[in-house]
Design a protein around this nucleic acid. Structure first.
Ligand SMILES: [Zn+2]
Ligand SMILES: [Zn+2]
Length: 402
DNA sequence: CGATGCGGGAGCC
DNA sequence: GGCTCCCGCATCG
């Protein structure tokens, strides 16, 4: 039996080990718990609900308020009968970027919209956290009046890799003739530079500051195959040029403008390959773009019915979609699991889980691996701050055979 | 890049 | 004073 206490008491009671509660992912309603002082979730003050820090001017008690859930403005229903309920970003800027995006349901033309939480007398539900040597005290006030957002997941790897924004280089070949020319140069020389002077823009943002920015981007490609695949022994080696080939098989893929499906993993059934594109190109702001300079649009191949599912990237990025694909609602295929380790960067290792419908007990084998170094320099003044910006991305691209 | 925590400050009752 | 919300800053992964 829990002793009586309130988070605002001058002294909260001592709690014995036996009185500690199991960590609760989705506390709802007015409730209190005391978690073990070593519980990782409790120490991080995390919750299934999207809670953001709010200033209560009390250093001893951390207060958080609910951000609600991202829903579709058209209130569409997915093929599996569920509704769109994405997780609002905690960061204000990132959340503003989410709003108005296309609904991730490819059959829907709606936009993403924040459904605010008014579960506590018209205000968002609040969580309070307080640490003592006996435990982590938690108290919630209010009943959420909205559905649960997607749970947070391990985006750390993707963020670290700078994969939050990307376009597939292969896809770019389809839609941007100018860039594809540049990339064709790449396959011959393995190194080149190009300027985006043609994309420099003058404009007036609605932040009432003029900007004039030029972009200069360099792109270097280094074949890392030997380095990353010491057991390289495939008899079906596909070289880099084939990935950039314009006429086939890339042409069969269509583009989905969908930020939530950014990593692209494509099965080419004809060639029996899994082609995984993790390429990023820098983002060039439009004249009417009032968002961050470094925000980016993303595209995906997930439109052709031959999708593969990569849990390390795709599911982690969007559990809702991964469930959709995992249940084979669109593909009707039975997936097997493979687990393969890739070195994405000399300083970083992560495991990529691949599901395929091939009945193979072998791990996918790396046929080709290259790493792109994309350097983007902005000079002049942009419309947010007057500063020059330089950023560098390392982008892996690899291909597997089963 | 975004998640998270901190704290000053404005506005409201 | 108490509370909410907004904003910028710093840290971390
Ligand atoms: Zn929709
Ligand atoms: Zn809520």
């Amino acid at each position: 039996m829990l002793r009586d206490w309130d988070i605002n008491d001058n002294i909260v009671p001592a709690i014995s080990e036996a009185e500690l509660n199991e960590y609760q992912d989705w506390p709802d309603g007015h409730c209190r718990f005391v978690y073990h002082p070593n519980n990782e979730e409790a120490k991080k003050h995390s919750s299934g609900w999207a809670m953001r820090n709010t200033n209560n001017h009390n250093v001893n008690i951390l207060k958080k308020s609910c951000l609600g859930v991202l829903v579709c403005s058209a209130e569409c229903t997915l093929p599996n009968g569920s509704k769109i309920n994405l997780r609002p970003a905690i960061c204000d800027k990132a959340r503003r970027k989410q709003q108005g995006k296309n609904c991730p349901n490819r059959n829907c033309s709606g936009r993403l919209d924040i459904q605010a939480c008014r579960g506590h007398c018209g205000y968002p539900v609040t969580h309070f956290w307080r640490h003592t040597k006996f435990g982590v005290f938690f108290q919630a006030k209010g009943v959420h009046d909205h559905s649960k957002p997607e749970p947070k997941n391990c985006r750390e790897t993707r963020r670290y890799l700078g994969m939050g924004k990307r376009k597939s280089v292969s896809l770019m070949l389809n839609r941007d003739a100018a860039l594809s020319k540049k990339l064709k140069t790449l396959q011959n020389s393995n190194k080149f530079e190009f300027n985006y002077n043609g994309l420099s823009q003058n404009g007036q943002s609605n932040m009432n500051s003029s900007y004039n920015t030029t972009y200069q981007t360099s792109l270097n490609c280094q074949d890392m195959t030997q380095q990353y695949s010491p057991d390289f022994s495939s008899n079906e080696f596909i070289n880099a040029e084939e990935i950039f080939q314009l006429d086939q098989p890339i042409k069969q893929y269509t583009m989905a403008q969908d930020f939530s499906k950014s990593p692209s993993t494509v099965l080419d059934l004809d060639r029996n390959y899994l082609v995984k594109n993790e390429s990023i190109i820098p983002y060039y702001p439009e004249a009417d773009d009032t968002m961050s300079l470094t925000s980016g649009s993303s595209v995906s191949f997930f439109e052709d019915g031959y999708q593969y599912f990569d849990s390390n990237n795709y599911m982690a990025a969007n559990p809702y979609n991964s469930t959709e694909y995992n249940n084979n609602i669109f593909t009707g295929k039975q997936f097997d699991n493979y687990e393969t380790k890739f070195f994405m960067n000399p300083s970083l290792e992560y495991t990529s889980n691949v599901k395929s419908d091939y009945l193979s007990t072998n791990d996918p084998q790396i046929n080709y691996f290259s790493e792109y170094r994309i350097q983007n320099n902005l000079t002049g003044n942009n419309y947010i701050n007057n500063y020059a910006e330089e950023n560098v991305s390392f982008v892996p691209q690899y291909e597997c055979a089963f």
